[in-house]
Simulated scan of single mutants.
Amino acid sequence: MADVTVNLLYTEIQAPLGLILLLGPGLVILICLVYGFVQQAALSMELRRVNKLLQQARDLAQKAEQSRYVELKSEMQKQILELQNQSASRHSSLMAAVNGLQSAVEGSAHETVNSLSASVGEVEDRLTQLVEMAAGKDFEIREKKIESNQKQ
């Protein structure tokens, strides 16, 4: 506990040697602790700032992705609508073509029926004339034999 003179550059003080030996390293340790706490606080604030920026970036990315999904959905709906319109127009044109073909077939069938009716009427008239001619004459109807030449 002897007093010792300590030169502090701008002044000199006298203090016990034990106190100087305890306060010197204690002061260095206290300065290191304060420096460590300041560094830790600065690091903590920097981490909070980075986390905040990261969360903002995530939110922005989610919004961008969601808007892309909405845009993709609207584009797909537009294309589906276009395909439905094309399908409807093709269906109507095919139905018109089918109706045209149906009326053509009906017309052709009507023409064929009229032609057959005329041919049957003509054959009937000829048969009637033949029967009238044959009524006055005596004739015999024979079956005609068909000979076929088959090579064996």
Rank of each mutant, 00 (worst) to 15 (best):
V34S: 07
V34D: 04
V34G: 05
V34H: 04
Y35R: 07
Y35K: 12
Y35A: 13
Y35V: 07
Y35P: 01
Y35L: 14
G36Q: 11
F37P: 00
F37D: 00
V38Q: 03
V38G: 04
Q39Y: 07
Q39K: 13
Q40Y: 11
Q40W: 10
Q40T: 06
A41N: 14
A41T: 02
A41C: 13
A42K: 10
L43D: 15
L43M: 15
S44L: 10
S44G: 05
M45L: 14
E46A: 08
E46D: 05
L47Q: 14
L47S: 06
L47E: 13
R48H: 08
R48S: 06
R49W: 02
R49N: 03
V50D: 03
V50R: 13
K52T: 14
K52E: 09
L53N: 05
L53D: 02
L54R: 12
L54M: 14
L54G: 03
Q55C: 06
Q55E: 06
Q55H: 12
Q56E: 07
A57H: 03
A57L: 02
A57I: 06
R58Q: 10
R58P: 01
D59I: 00
D59P: 00
L60M: 09
A61C: 04
K63H: 04
A64R: 05
A64M: 00
A64T: 04
A64F: 01
E65M: 12
E65W: 09
E65P: 08
E65D: 11
Q66S: 08
Q66L: 10
S67T: 09
S67H: 06
S67P: 04
S67K: 09
R68H: 02
R68W: 05
R68Q: 07
R68L: 06
R68V: 02
R68Y: 06
Y69M: 10
Y69G: 10
V70R: 00
V70K: 01
E71C: 01
